[in-house]
Amino acid sequence: MSPVPLHWYLAVAFLLFVLGLLVVLSRRNLIYILMGVELILNASSLVFVAFGSYRGAKGLLDGTVIGTFIVVLAAAEATIALAIVLNIFGTFHSVRPEDPNLLKE
């Protein structure tokens, strides 16, 4: 019985990353875009933990710690970004990223 190779984890992580990137690039709603960012963050976290785990116990520890930090960062990012989105909605009555354009031209 052979274990799952590291490549598989990385492939899943890359898929997740690309899906997140697509969400960020193609959606026209700020809340979707933030969700895409979450997917990208999770993909990177998964890479850290997978690499760490395949290095052994010490590596897994480091991967876990970095993954935790990513969770913390994501939580902070989500709160702030959602607060900004709500504020933008309050000001422009829109959640589309192209609508706040007071500075344009």
């Binding site: 990137l21 960020v24 875009i33």
Partner: peptide
């Protein structure tokens, strides 16, 4: 363009 997503697309 001023569109956020165009910038991100270029970045990617």
């Amino acid at each position: 363009t001023g569109y956020l997503q165009h910038y991100i697309t270029l970045l990617a």
